[in-house]
Design a protein around this nucleic acid. Structure first.
Length: 337
DNA sequence: CATCAGGGCCCTG
DNA sequence: CAGGGCCCTGAT
């Protein structure tokens, strides 16, 4: 049995982040703060919290646990994102500069939406969606490693179960961070989990996903994968690297390619659950008798071309915002809680 | 009580 | 390349 080193603060159960610095980020215009900073289709997780105009998010950057409060500080046309960063000790200016660049990447703040906006402004389906959500971007708040873990707990599970598994993992291996009057869990570092036995993970009721988590953790802890280097590689190579990980297949790779690596071009894979919803959303078909996935793929890629993943993201998120407001009841039976 | 499928993926034949 | 099996859970 492996013994983990536990610091006095961690033993108390909470790590207090008392040092504080501010950052201001300038996204490309237009920018939609809430639609970028909150995705109503994502399952809730105790590493973040959202209310209109503000997202609380823990983060690990260069091994340092951080607490973020991200606030809308501008308008759609003249956007500003205000980030308050809590940490254990004072962060050097060089760290803050690196962090600003990392956040701009993760939240897709440099995305150029002009071509997309122009092309779909008068599209019968995407046009109205654009008027509501112009400036929204697919984004990630996690590192690649963290997103892989999230993707693994999503697999073959109903929403409630994914929530339970993520919570159990964060409570066992993460760190409870106290900052700005809040308590949220921060992710563990791959090295913290490396060497943990599969059985220990199974005790958290993650089931057969335990092996995937162990193998993915090994890949990162032992330097087999470098997220920053991978960002600069071609899409095909990124996909290949993801599919090469044990437990990562086309569905998980698809989420990561769009959210983490910002690949927003043609669709390459449609998982069964999305197939049912797309059949209704884009073709008005009964979700109980969905259009075959390969045919759906061709139809959507023909309709949305080089912006297919982005266009589908807009329609999808719009649907879930409407659903949350009780405006898309047909989705109810398709979301297994 | 038993059975089943779920926001996949791996492995086998 | 199709299909069985997998952890676990809540629905039936």
């Amino acid at each position: 049995m492996r013994v983990r080193a536990i610091s006095p603060t961690a033993m108390a159960g909470v790590l207090r982040l008392t040092s504080r610095r501010d950052l201001e980020l300038a996204p490309t215009s237009p920018f939609h703060f809430d639609a970028t900073m909150h995705k109503p289709d994502h399952f809730p997780s105790p590493d973040n919290a959202w209310a209109p105009g503000v997202r609380w998010q823990t983060m690990r950057w260069r091994g340092e646990p951080l607490g973020l409060r991200v606030a809308d500080g501008g308008t759609r046309a003249h956007p500003r994102v205000l980030v308050r960063v809590w940490s254990r000790g004072r962060l050097p200016g060089e760290f803050m500069e690196g962090l600003a660049g990392e956040l701009a990447w993760r939240w897709n703040l440099e995305l150029d939406l002009r071509g997309f906006n122009a092309r779909f402004a008068s599209d019968p389906q995407i046009g109205p969606v654009l008027r509501r959500w112009r400036g929204m971007r697919p984004a990630s708040w996690s590192s690649l490693y963290e997103y892989l873990v999230i993707a693994i707990v999503l697999q073959n599970a109903v929403v409630h179960r994914s929530i339970q598994m993520m919570r159990a993992l964060l409570e066992r291996y993460g760190t409870l961070l106290r900052y700005g009057g809040r308590e949220l869990y921060g992710f563990w570092d791959p090295a913290d989990l490396d060497g943990v036995a599969e059985e220990e993970l199974r005790a958290l009721k993650v089931g057969y996903r335990a092996r995937s988590i162990v193998r993915v953790t090994e890949a990162f802890a032992r330097g087999g994968l470098d997220e920053i280097a991978l960002r600069g590689r071609p899409e095909a190579e990124q996909r290949e690297a993801l599919l090469g990980l044990y437990g990562i297949g086309p569905a998980s790779a698809g989420y990561i390619l769009s959210d983490v690596f910002h690949r927003l071009g043609p669709l390459t894979h449609i998982p069964p659950w999305e197939q049912r919803i797309y059949s209704m959303l884009f073709l008005g078909r009964d979700p109980g008798r969905p259009v075959p996935a390969d045919r759906l793929l061709r139809i959507l890629n023909r309709r949305f071309g080089e912006h297919a993943t982005l266009a589908v993201h807009y329609a999808w998120e719009d649907l879930f915002w409407r659903w949350r407001r009780g405006k898309a009841a047909w989705l109810d039976p398709l979301i297994r809680r």
